[in-house]
Amino acid sequence: MCDCVGAGSRVAGTGVSVFSLHPGVVQSDLWRHQHQCIQVAVKIFRIFTKTTLEGAQTTIFCAVESGLESQSGGYFSDCAPARCSRAASDDETAQKLWEISCNLLGITWQ
């Protein structure tokens, strides 16, 4: 199981649970900002995509499902624990991402 770029260990003992997830390819208005060719391709392959309601299900699941506290830091897809890539499990990359994110946000966090 992945550790959401180290976030699970950062909030351990605080009562906060964190999750990383993949909602799937969702039919959203974000595609309108893409090149027209991509917009056409999205319309053609629409049958293989999720509606916004379907795409929100894993996020909702992680937010409201009781008993997931023990899986804090985990990665989910289609409302179930999933395996993440090796790159997503790299602690050094996670630390760099954390530091850059904190710097961009102007916050400090141990």
Rank of each mutant, 00 (worst) to 15 (best):
M1Q: 09
M1D: 11
C2I: 08
C2S: 12
D3R: 13
C4Y: 01
C4S: 14
G6T: 10
G8E: 02
G8I: 05
S9N: 05
V11P: 03
V11M: 03
A12L: 04
A12D: 05
A12Q: 10
A12M: 03
T14N: 04
G15P: 04
V16L: 02
S17E: 06
V18H: 02
V18N: 03
V18C: 07
S20D: 05
S20L: 09
L21Y: 08
L21R: 02
H22W: 08
P23R: 07
P23Q: 03
P23S: 08
G24W: 00
V25T: 06
V25P: 00
Q27L: 15
S28H: 00
L30G: 09
W31N: 00
H33D: 05
H35W: 04
I38L: 13
Q39G: 07
V42W: 01
V42F: 04
V42E: 06
K43P: 00
K43N: 10
I44N: 03
I44L: 14
R46E: 14
I47C: 14
T49N: 06
T49I: 03
T49D: 02
K50P: 07
K50N: 07
K50S: 05
L53I: 14
E54D: 15
E54V: 15
E54F: 13
G55I: 08
G55F: 06
G55H: 08
A56N: 08
A56K: 04
Q57A: 14
Q57S: 10
T58M: 01
T58G: 02
T58H: 00
I60K: 01
I60N: 02
V64E: 04
L68T: 03
L68W: 05
L68E: 01
Q71Y: 11
S72D: 09
G73L: 04
G73N: 08
G74C: 12
Y75W: 09
Y75T: 07
Y75Q: 07
Y75C: 08
F76Y: 10
S77T: 10
D78H: 01
C79T: 06
A80S: 11
A80T: 05
P81H: 02
A82E: 03
S85I: 04
S85E: 03
S85W: 05
A87Q: 07
A88C: 12
A88V: 07
A88S: 13
S89I: 06
S89P: 01
D90V: 14
E92V: 15
T93P: 00
T93L: 15
A94C: 09
Q95G: 09
K96V: 13
K96M: 11
L97N: 11
E99G: 12
E99K: 14
I100S: 08
S101L: 09
N103Y: 13
L104V: 08
L104I: 10
I107T: 13
T108K: 15
T108S: 15
Q110R: 12
